[in-house]
């Protein structure tokens, strides 16, 4: 019984991991940027929401909308001001990763300076629950699951059916050829960072609405996201979904078998096992180093 309840929680969490990890994949598959700054976006969206909703007293849907837009703008600005100049200079991947660490450090500490280090609660009511045959699901969990699934479905429709989708797939396949086809990849990158910013903002909002936030929630989430992305398979867009649900369920099983405190260790042990034995992940293609 406990196991089934934990699995349900794991699948709901897995949906959020999938969404967040898809946003990471959109950036990594196309630009090959190890976007650690992504963790700061996860944390900053609920802070925008807190400022608009709790402080300024705007209505809830407007607050959600504006905080998603603001997060998207920050995501685009990070690419425009930090990553693109390095791309133009043809900097190495480690240089970009280090800059990305710098971005996180700055954003996290600016937020901590403005809002303080303590945990903030977005929703202080006791959550209403849905009960069915002994299982309990809270309303925030329902929002998490439904919003994640809807965004994922919209993204896949865009990816398969529209011109933009074709460009994204082409970009993740070979960025030089995309340029040759006359597509301005610098502008396309901004669009991709925008989409990825929207995704992580929704993930951040839906989780923080449930459990609150502090300025340091981004990094633990990013670690889960990266693990989900890697074991799903780099270069694929369906991989993050498999990886996300896999990590969600594994973490639920960890709680069942050991204790929640070993979650991060088990997650990374799984990552290292994958890196050694199947570095291409579930869906990735095996590439040979030239």
């Amino acid at each position: 019984m406990l196991l089934i309840q934990l699995l349900i929680n794991g699948i709901i969490m897995g949906a959020v991991y999938s969404l967040a990890s898809l946003g990471f994949a959109i950036v990594y598959n196309t630009t090959k940027i190890f976007h650690i700054g992504y963790s700061a976006l996860y944390m900053i969206a609920p802070y925008f929401f807190w400022q608009l909703y709790t402080k300024l007293g705007l209505n809830i849907s407007l607050s959600i909308f504006v905080s998603i837009i603001l997060t998207m703008i920050i995501s685009i600005l990070i690419d425009k001001t930090i990553y693109q100049p390095l791309f133009i200079k043809k900097s190495s991947s480690n240089v970009v990763t280090i800059s990305s660490i710098g971005v996180v450090t700055i954003i996290v500490n600016v937020i901590a300076m403005i809002f303080g280090n303590e945990t903030k609660i977005l929703n202080s009511d006791i959550a209403n629950t849905i009960k069915f045959s002994g299982m309990i699901v809270t309303y925030p969990q329902v929002y998490q699951f439904i919003s994640s699934i809807i965004i994922i479905i919209i993204f896949f429709i865009v990816l398969k059916k529209t011109n933009l989708g074709i460009i994204i797939r082409a970009f993740s396949n070979n960025d030089v050829l995309v340029q040759i086809m006359g597509i301005n990849i610098l502008r396309t990158r901004l669009l991709l960072f925008g989409i990825s910013g929207i995704m992580i903002a929704i993930a951040g909002l839906s989780i923080s609405y449930d459990v609150g936030m502090d300025p340091y929630i981004g990094m633990p989430m990013l670690l889960n996201v990266i693990v989900a992305f890697i074991i799903g398979g780099i270069g694929s867009f369906a991989g993050p979904l498999i990886g996300g649900f896999f990590i969600g369920v594994i973490q639920a099983l960890t709680i069942w078998m050991f204790s929640s405190k070993w979650q991060s260790a088990i997650t990374f042990i799984i990552l290292i096992i994958f890196l050694i034995f199947r570095p291409q992940g579930f869906l990735g293609k095996k590439e040979r180093e030239v």
């Binding site: 990763t97 990266i226 991060s264 180093e289």
Partner: peptide, 26 residues
């Protein structure tokens, strides 16, 4: 475990080592 990995993957495996070590100490 990590020497066969390159660039981002190597960084990631050291990150994993860091998280696991911290988790064990904690």
């Amino acid at each position: 475990t990590s020497l066969r990995l390159k660039n981002d993957y190597f960084v990631l495996s050291t990150l994993g080592f860091q998280i696991i070590t911290f988790s064990v100490l904690y």
